[in-house]
Design a protein around this nucleic acid. Sequence first.
DNA 1: TAGATTGTTAATCGATTAACAATC
DNA 2: TAGATTGTTAATCGATTAACAATC
Lengths: 218, 218
Amino acid sequence: MEERKISRAVISRLPRYYRYLGELSEEGVERISSKELSERMKVTASQIRQDLNNFGGFGQQGYGYNVRYLYNEIAKILGIDRQHNVIIIGAGHLGQAIANYANFERRGFLIKAMFDVDPNLFGKTIRGARVYSLDNLEKFISENDIQIAALTIPKTRALEIAERLTKSGIKAIWNFAHTDLIVPYDVVVENVHLSESLMRLSYRVSNIDAPPFEGKYD
Amino acid sequence: MEERKISRAVISRLPRYYRYLGELSEEGVERISSKELSERMKVTASQIRQDLNNFGGFGQQGYGYNVRYLYNEIAKILGIDRQHNVIIIGAGHLGQAIANYANFERRGFLIKAMFDVDPNLFGKTIRGARVYSLDNLEKFISENDIQIAALTIPKTRALEIAERLTKSGIKAIWNFAHTDLIVPYDVVVENVHLSESLMRLSYRVSNIDAPPFEGKYD
DNA sequence: TAGATTGTTAATCGATTAACAATC
DNA sequence: TAGATTGTTAATCGATTAACAATC
């Protein structure tokens, strides 16, 4: 399908382009040059053009990029132009925070159910997603065409649940557990390790950087 | 203070080293070579040695690294050997999830208070952290020596709150709002953009990679 | 001492930036 | 057409990996 290997760095930047294009679109901006966009986003115009040209020529010489068109094309590249059925494993605060976030639905991520071990939560419903016992996990996945699972459980049980998920045919795990999962090569794991993020912040507060440039800040 | 500029990539990897060393320590492992660690972590031994040597020679030829010692040294580098006073802006599910996460306290991040606009939440207490009105923000920060603020509010209000935070002397913002903050150069912003993480996952599910190597998986 | 493994220099690889011909 | 700006090649920069002398 794809012509050549796209680097992880490029993919990481796509959602940010998407966000800025969405904002431009809401502002009513119809076209934008890589130079203007680069000034807004504080990246080089070269990088924007290089990144986009990994996926095709979306611009036009002398004109720039059509905001709405580019926005839609990036949505296609990211695969958020279609629907993904999602379940959340762990109905604690983090699981509930994810379930409550309406924007995910706007991007095509439909939360179909939540699973927990705590019987007090069974039957509770968050934005239409009901909490079930983990005993029903495999059955629900196969009967409801679930592709993505968000894992918001303690790391002690994460590996075991990840194995059950992949055996049930899950294609991707959004992993909030503080551990590295072991999965078959064709299953995607996207880690959100909050404690590692907080430690990076800690490093940076503790070793305050020099000013990035000599110019003036407004 | 620091001798030379440490790259962002190196800093990003430190918390993961820290996690693995903590696990090794719990397993009772006293020493480990860069080669053994590299096999566990699935990185090159060269990278481990290069990364660590940015901060000093923690190992010993012919022996390797003392697990407990290296663990403690990385804690110092990351600044998690001391205490940081934290407040959470936004007492919704995400804010509560963070407040409830006991591990942060173990790393020296003490959650001193939460702030919200919803009067129904005022007075509520989560693991000792009370929810206050945002009206009290500046006063609380200055009176309680707060260095770090976690921002778990909608993006519409994020910029305005970020400005109030930095004007009150906050040194770092852990930003969960889906927007890029504008802060003075000496204020650290660590972004956790969950929707961007989910889009990266979406890209990878939609463009399933080829197997990373030809060997066998166990 | 001999073997193991670091710390560090050198080589390679990949990503970013610059430059510019193509073209709208 | 002339001006603007892309798409793309070339140059630079930085990060990763390999190699090995130093040394425990």
